[in-house]
């Protein structure tokens, strides 16, 4: 599984999204109500742990992390910097 697939699996399972047809890689997880605001921290804790990256407050401010694709891009960028 690549980074994006792995994050997608986590989000679907952790937030009990199942096979909702409205869900997708580019759907805004927060605006569309799939993840509530508390879930944001859970996603960051997961990616920091699973991929061994450190997401800083500057990353959070600079890069949007609203969709699975955007989250994956941040992780890829951090992995590239290491």
């Amino acid at each position: 599984m690549n980074v994006m697939e792995q994050i997608c699996e986590f989000v679907k399972e952790h937030f009990e999204i199942g096979d909702d047809p409205d869900f997708g890689l580019d759907v805004n997880l927060f605006d569309e109500g799939f993840v509530d605001s508390l879930g944001a921290t859970e996603i960051v804790l997961y990616i920091e742990e699973a991929f061994g990256v450190q997401i800083t407050q500057k990353d959070i401010i600079l890069y949007p992390m609203n969709t699975v694709r955007e989250i994956a891009q941040v992780v890829e960028r951090k992995l590239g910097e290491q």
Binding site: S37, A40, T41, V44, I55, T56, Q57, I60, I61
Partner: peptide
């Protein structure tokens, strides 16, 4: 404080320190 940080309490406190 950037609005987005209130979704990430740990990062919010990083900013407070910085």
């Amino acid at each position: 404080i950037p609005e987005i940080l209130f979704m990430y309490p740990h990062k919010l406190m990083d900013l407070m320190e910085e």
